[in-house]
Simulated assay, not measured.
Amino acid sequence: MSAGAWRIALLFSVISLGSAYLNGYEWLRFFSFFGSWGTIGIVLTSIGISWFTYAILRFCHQRGLTSLHELFVHLFGSKLAPSFSVLVYVILLAYLGTVIGQQAVLQADHRYALLVVCSLCFTAFWLARRGMNEMVRAAWLLLILGLACIGLIFTEQRHVPVPSLSYQLNGYWILSACYYLALHLLLSVVALLPLITRLPTPAAIRMGIGLGGLFLFFMTMLGHAALLAYWHEIHASAIPLKEILSRMIPYAAPVHTLVSLGHSGLVLAALFYGLTVPVAERYDLQLTPMLLVMSIATAAFALFPLWTEAFTSMPYTAATYCGMLILAVYCWRYKV
């Protein structure tokens, strides 16, 4: 497999899992809460994210599109594209700031939360400035460590109860799966667009997305099984996987915190890179000042979760509906 395909596979795995996947709360909220229906949701979501990400990236590759703005020109027209591009940039920065702000509150003492936010933004700035090779190396390491953290849970608990299909017999699991798909589709397209510009054929995109989608499915199913195995102990927790590991091994908590924060920093770096590189290349701008502005703006948005939880759901909702709108317009215009 080519180096380009490996890069796409690794970055797609990192982004589609989510910046805070090792907390386990996203899996709990979108899938495990619905029992066996959540398992079906994982299957459909893994296929959906992989398929639509590949379809949109192939579409961009065939037409030589290198940025969100150019993609939006094809989807929404030249009049709406500039305004919508700016809106999506602001929403994504607000979303990223909210995510790392919540991570800082959950993973560290509140007195050190601001320090954690600044450290994550600096790490993301440094990684994005170093380039794709550095991010790929970090992706290898963090995915292996994340897999080890989740796999460790099954050394003690190997029985996973399978809830009856009569539990949560409603359509909400489909909505949850769609929300997860829309949000992570948007993030994946943003992060992977700079990687496809120099690929000679779409074959590397197909191979990379396929391999990354398999890893997404495997990791999500593994985390889902761990949550079901300890359901009664962690169903109300905001960091269920960390809680499980802390009960098993006393020193697991700091290791989990470092890996989880490292993964968040890598997702932040990949999205910074995806947002800035196309603009820098298009307008012949220097990358470092743009990354610095992104880091400062994200840190500013991260202050809101440190002060109050009143508005933390708004960036998540806005980013999710942006993803749904892009997907709907793409399917409508190109008859997918």
Rank of each mutant, 00 (worst) to 15 (best):
Ala203Thr: 12
Ala128Met: 10
Tyr54Ile: 04
Ile15Asp: 00
His69Ile: 06
Gly101Lys: 03
Leu216Asp: 00
Leu306His: 03
Tyr321Ile: 14
Val88Cys: 06
Tyr321Trp: 14
Val255Gln: 14
Ala319Val: 10
Ile209Asp: 01
Leu199Ser: 05
Thr312Gly: 09
Gly24Cys: 08
Tyr283Leu: 09
Ala299Thr: 03
Leu211His: 00
Arg130Met: 10
Ile244Arg: 04
Cys322Arg: 09
Leu10His: 01
Thr276Trp: 01
Val259Phe: 09
Trp140Lys: 07
Leu325Met: 12
Ala138Leu: 14
Asn170His: 12
Arg63Ile: 13
Ser83Glu: 14
Met219Ser: 06
Val88Phe: 10
Thr155Ile: 10
Phe122Pro: 02
Arg129Lys: 08
His159Ile: 11
Leu187Pro: 05
Leu65Met: 11
Gly131Ser: 05
Val136Tyr: 02
Cys149Asn: 14
Ser46Tyr: 00
Ser36Gly: 10
Arg129Ser: 13
Phe12Asn: 01
Ala20Met: 10
Gly213Glu: 02
Ala124Met: 13
Gly262Val: 07
Met135Glu: 04
Leu275His: 03
Trp37Cys: 03
Leu114Phe: 09
Leu222His: 01
Thr155Gly: 13
Ile56Cys: 05
Ala236Tyr: 10
Asp284Gly: 05
Tyr283Val: 03
Trp126Gly: 08
Ala81His: 12
Thr308Arg: 04
Arg247Tyr: 13
Gln103Val: 08
Leu183Pro: 02
Gln157Phe: 12
Gln102Pro: 05
Val88Arg: 02
Gln168Ile: 07
Leu65Pro: 00
Tyr283Ser: 00
Gly212Met: 01
His110Asp: 12
Thr155Trp: 11
Leu181Arg: 05
Gln157Ile: 14
His263Ile: 14
Leu195His: 05
Ile100Thr: 08
Ser46Arg: 02
Lys335Val: 12
Ile205Ser: 01
Ala225Trp: 03
Arg130His: 07
Gln103His: 13
Arg206His: 04
Arg129Trp: 15
Val14Ala: 04
Ile174Phe: 15
Asn133Gly: 14
Ala280His: 03
Val255Arg: 06
Leu17Cys: 01
Ala20Asn: 14
Pro315Gly: 00
Val14Gly: 01
Arg58Thr: 09
Ala55His: 14
Ala270Ser: 11
Cys118Thr: 10
Pro202Arg: 15
Ile150Arg: 01
Thr45Leu: 08
Trp307Ala: 09
Ile174Pro: 03
Ala128Phe: 10
Thr98Tyr: 02
Tyr180Cys: 07
Ser36Arg: 09
Leu120Cys: 06
Ile47Asn: 03
Leu186Gly: 06
Val279Gly: 01
Phe218Gln: 06
Leu17Glu: 00
His232Ile: 06
Ala226Ser: 11
Ala318His: 06
Gly4Thr: 02
Lys242Gln: 15
Leu258Tyr: 13
Gln102Asn: 11
Leu292Met: 07
Ala124Gln: 06
Gln103Met: 13
Trp231Cys: 09
Ser67Trp: 04
Ala226Gly: 04
Gln102Met: 11
Val117Cys: 10
Phe154Ile: 08
Leu185Tyr: 07
Thr317Cys: 11
Leu195Trp: 04
Glu26Leu: 07
Arg7Trp: 00
His232Cys: 07
Phe304Gln: 13
Thr317Trp: 15
Ala238Val: 15
Ile153Leu: 12
Ser85Asp: 15
Leu44Gln: 05
Ala138Val: 13
Ser19Trp: 10
Gly265Ala: 08
